[in-house]
Amino acid sequence: MGKATLSLADDISGLTSELCRAVGLSHSTNAAEEYADLVREMLGPGGDRPIGQPPAWPSDVADDHTPVEFSLAVDRAGRPAVRLLLETLGEGTSIEANVCAAQELLPRLAERYGFSLAAFDAVADLFLPKHPQGRFAWWWSVVLRLGLPPAFKIYFNPEVRGRAVAGELVEAGLDRLGFGGAYPNLRRRLRPGDELDRYSFFSIDLHTQPDPRVKVYLSHHDGDLAQLLRTAGAARQVEEEQIREFTAIAGGHRGRFTGRPLISSLSFLAGDTDRASGFSVYLPVRDYAEDDEVALARAHALLAGHGLDRALLDRALTVLARRPLNEGVGLIPHLSLRTGRPHTGLTVYLSAESYAVTPPRPESLAS
């Protein structure tokens, strides 16, 4: 089947099963097929559209509007996980249609995998208004690990009712889920106004445990290491030196990030009253590297610095890289570091590039 007639669902589900095999997550053919079928189902009706046609919905998940972004996460023990950030595509071409399709899917997944909807029910009315604003309202994360059932997370858009009330939604969401005391500590670490440090995502884990994790993500426009460390102070057990080293290597030893913003997240677990348990930083390396060869070299350096096997990433790229690395930028869009609880590790994000490839960036712009 040629690319002109290959559907988005066929493309992404095939890559998913191949990627899981490449990094050792598919212990059987059945597991690989299960993952592929799950992704096909989660893409929704819009997944049937051929990728030879322009995307019907301009999803903001990836630069070329592919509604999926892969990532390879490796913890300190070297155990890999394949993750997908995914937007369900509805029958129409609107945020409302996508939300409707996701809402229809949610109870089926909950019944099949046995997770609770209590956290979702507690905050859904905050983040799913009748007329959502912004570029999205509901994204999913699917985490695939060896020997475990898929794990799910929902990402909500704090600016779905407008940027001016994003903080109020985050505060209300944290309060409803038992973390209201942490919001003042977070808020005072941000720069004044609502332009530089913006709430990007509010996420909830869909787990079988009674107390799922909650995460708050922030985009730090025109940010630097100092702002990252200031925000990190809203969490416990943050390893500042690791954040310094990660930012220097992943960002090419720059001071201020004036392109796509640095992103941080705070992870809230049961018992967190005034501060979060974990802190992560996400660096959009595609804006600060000439091409994907440079981005890969930085990812290799980070993995080596943490004593992790870079061969896992190389095997993943044999599946996803459909062109020479020096002929584009964005196949590796983000690099991230997790510190604190529940676990630490590195993540390399990987694009499917189902629709388009971003040309290499001139060295003068990347630096």
Rank of each mutant, 00 (worst) to 15 (best):
L85M: 14
R49I: 08
R163K: 04
R323D: 08
P210W: 00
R338T: 09
L38W: 00
E240S: 09
V285M: 00
L335Y: 00
T231Q: 10
W140C: 14
V68D: 13
L105N: 03
L8P: 15
T358S: 07
V281K: 10
L337I: 06
F136E: 00
V329M: 01
R49H: 12
Q237G: 06
A304I: 03
W138S: 04
P184N: 11
A22L: 08
P129C: 01
P67H: 10
P362R: 00
P192C: 13
G134V: 12
S351P: 14
L38C: 00
I12D: 10
L296Q: 00
R298M: 03
S116W: 02
F115A: 00
V74Q: 04
G78M: 06
P261F: 03
V68Q: 10
N30Y: 14
R145F: 03
A164I: 06
A22D: 15
E34C: 14
E239F: 09
E168S: 03
G44N: 01
P67D: 14
S94Q: 10
A270E: 13
T339Q: 09
L331K: 04
R189V: 09
A81N: 11
I51D: 03
M1F: 02
G271M: 04
A295F: 10
S94D: 04
Y35M: 13
L262D: 15
Y113P: 12
S13G: 11
L325K: 06
L218G: 05
R108T: 14
C100Y: 09
G271A: 02
N185D: 05
D309W: 07
A9Y: 15
T258Y: 03
T5H: 12
L86Q: 12
V68L: 03
D121H: 08
E195P: 15
G47F: 14
L84H: 08
G52E: 02
G52H: 02
L19K: 12
S277P: 09
L269Y: 11
E18S: 15
D11Y: 08
H131T: 10
V281G: 07
Q237N: 08
A232Q: 10
L6W: 07
D272G: 04
A301K: 04
A31N: 06
Q242W: 03
D11P: 14
A118K: 12
H343I: 11
D222L: 05
E104D: 08
A4Y: 13
A32Q: 02
H65D: 02
P149A: 08
Q209D: 05
A119H: 03
D48N: 11
A248Y: 15
V281N: 03
S364D: 10
P80Y: 00
C20E: 12
V68H: 08
E18T: 05
L269P: 04
G90K: 13
